[in-house]
Design a protein around this nucleic acid. Structure first.
Length: 466
RNA sequence: GGCGGCAUAGCCAAGUGGUAAGGCAGAGGACUGCAAAUCCUUUAUCCCCGGUUCGAAUCCGGGUGCCGCCUCCA
């Protein structure tokens, strides 16, 4: 079974076949670091983090690149507002970005190239495009002519006529055509700038991805991903430039994720309902947010609300309890290998998990398979007789698929109880043996107040943190 | 105007031809000193109207409602 991916370029699911058999060249459009990222940005980074992990699990050597746009109009604007230089602003939000991502369990990309560190590569690209007649200079600006290639509009499925007719014309009479876009922007006085053959200026937005993707991944990418809104014009323009520049197809699979709505309305700055990850982290755990982002299929919209996250909390508790109970039961289990029937059931779960992920990365279904694993774990824990091998096999399965791949299951073991609390538990056990239940209940309540929940089982007292 | 998406239980959410996954919440039962956890059982005229088909949430046509993109917004 091969992985099927919905390719925006062809508007259907296609079997995934990288250019090189076992290697995947994967580029994700990263954030513009002019501010803290919001939950919508996070969806991109969390989801494609899972895609990368899954492809790695499937045996591919994944080269995963995600850029930082660290110079553009918004950064310049922000730097004026904050009274700090652009590089300083960028640096601080890059740092913030990593803090947010660490909390959401997103792994680092292989390289996080920054636009400002690739000015030379971009200038090379621009020079080449001018030479080929795709770009032209006008008084320190350089523009690209997307219409020179007749297949422009292919990715976003926009007929050229419509693009021409519907273009909201930017008031700029220096362009030959309204659809032309800037590769290089002339610096205004006082703005951050770099020397170039066209005078002092800075790169346009689209060219950075083309230049950096080529540098780190080569002429043709296997997967290029980002939010749906980047489809037009950003990705369309990247294709135009890159293909004009290299003469090769730019990317083979284009993946775009859907948006997050705030309740029923779209999240937007003008509505003032943008939820920053930074702020959400003070209310929710990174895991809850990550789970929320993976709980629906990536191309579907998801609606953010406190109620949805609250429900996620219940689901997480179910899995955590199963993991805790499994660990506790392992302590009292008989030595022994995993039963054959158990290995077979886990094998089936693995197949189901792969089936879900192979079908256009259906994390919602993958999570439901995780719960089948939880159910299996709970059945085992409740048995009078069970081998340690079986318990460990299930725990290992949950950790691997729920933890390593989805990043949702906590793989760290609880630290040992402090001696004081252990003494309390023993004291309560003695009270129970003496049938002094009011004393026993009082101790249980006392620990509960500290967030320690006690559960009596045939294998002794089990505890977990609330 | 152009391109596209969505409508499934109280809530979240899978499911693209064979009589509805999973989670949250609820109800009943088992287990327990009481709990908790868990297990079992239980909760859906799949937005409406037509059509195709032996058979449709799934395909086609028509409605209704909501939403996104159409130059720098994930």
């Amino acid at each position: 079974m091969t992985i099927q991916l919905y390719n925006t370029l062809t508007r259907r699911k296609e079997p995934f076949q990288p250019l090189e058999k076992d290697r995947v060249h994967f580029y994700v459009c990263g954030p513009t670091v002019y501010n803290f990222i919001h939950i919508g940005n996070a969806r991109v980074f969390v989801f494609f983090d899972v895609v990368r992990r899954y492809l790695t699990y499937r045996g591919y050597e994944v080269h995963y690149i995600q850029n930082f746009t660290d110079v553009d109009d918004r950064l310049i604007k922000q730097s004026i507002e904050e009274g700090r230089a652009v590089p300083e602003v960028a640096e601080s939000y890059i740092k913030a970005y990593f803090e947010d991502m660490d909390d959401l369990g997103v792994n680092r990309a292989d390289v996080h190239p920054r636009a400002t560190e690739h000015i030379k590569e971009m200038q090379d690209a621009i020079r080449a495009l001018i030479k080929k007649g795709y770009a032209y200079e006008v008084d320190g600006d350089v523009y690209y002519r997307p219409l020179k290639k007749e297949d422009y509009g292919q990715l976003s499925n926009q007929p050229l006529e419509e693009l021409k007719a519907g273009a909201r014309i930017e008031m700029n009479d220096r362009k030959d055509n309204p659809l032309d876009f800037a590769l290089w922007k002339k610096a205004k006085p006082g703005e951050i700038s770099w020397d170039s053959p066209w005078g002092k200026g800075r790169p346009g937005w689209h060219i950075e991805c083309s230049a950096m993707a080529r540098k780190y991944l080569g002429d043709t990418l296997d997967i290029h991903a980002g939010g749906m809104d980047l489809c037009f014009p950003h990705h369309e323009n990247e294709i135009a430039q890159s293909e004009a520049w290299t003469g090769k197809p730019f990317a083979r699979y284009w993946l775009h994720n859907g948006f997050i709505n705030m309740g029923a309305e779209k999240m937007s700055k003008s509505l003032g309902n943008v939820e920053r990850v930074r702020d959400l982290r003070s209310r929710y755990t990174g895991r809850e947010l990550r789970w929320f982002l993976l709980s629906a299929h990536y191309r579907n919209p998801i609606s953010f609300s406190d109620e949805s996250i609250r429900q996620i909390g219940g689901a997480i508790a179910r899995i955590d309890t199963a993991v805790t109970n499994l660990s506790h039961r392992i302590g009292a289990a008989l030595d022994g290998e995993a039963e054959k029937v158990m290995r077979e059931r886990l094998r089936t779960l693995t197949v189901d998990f792969e089936k879900a992920m192979d079908d256009d990365l259906n994390t919602a279904n993958a999570i439901s398979v995780l719960f089948e694993g939880v159910h299996l774990a709970n059945e085992l824990v409740a048995r009078d007789v069970v081998s340690r091998g079986s318990l460990e096999a299930v725990l290992g399965w949950l950790n691997h698929f729920g933890g390593d791949i989805l990043g949702l299951v906590k793989t760290t073991r609880e630290v040992d109880l402090e001696a004081e609390i252990e003494a309390k538990i023993e004291e309560r056990q003695q009270a129970r043996r003496d049938r002094d239940f009011s004393r026993a209940d009082a101790i249980r309540d006392e620990l509960a107040a500290q967030g320690i929940l006690l559960e009596d089982t045939p294998q002794g007292v089990r505890w977990r943190r609330k």
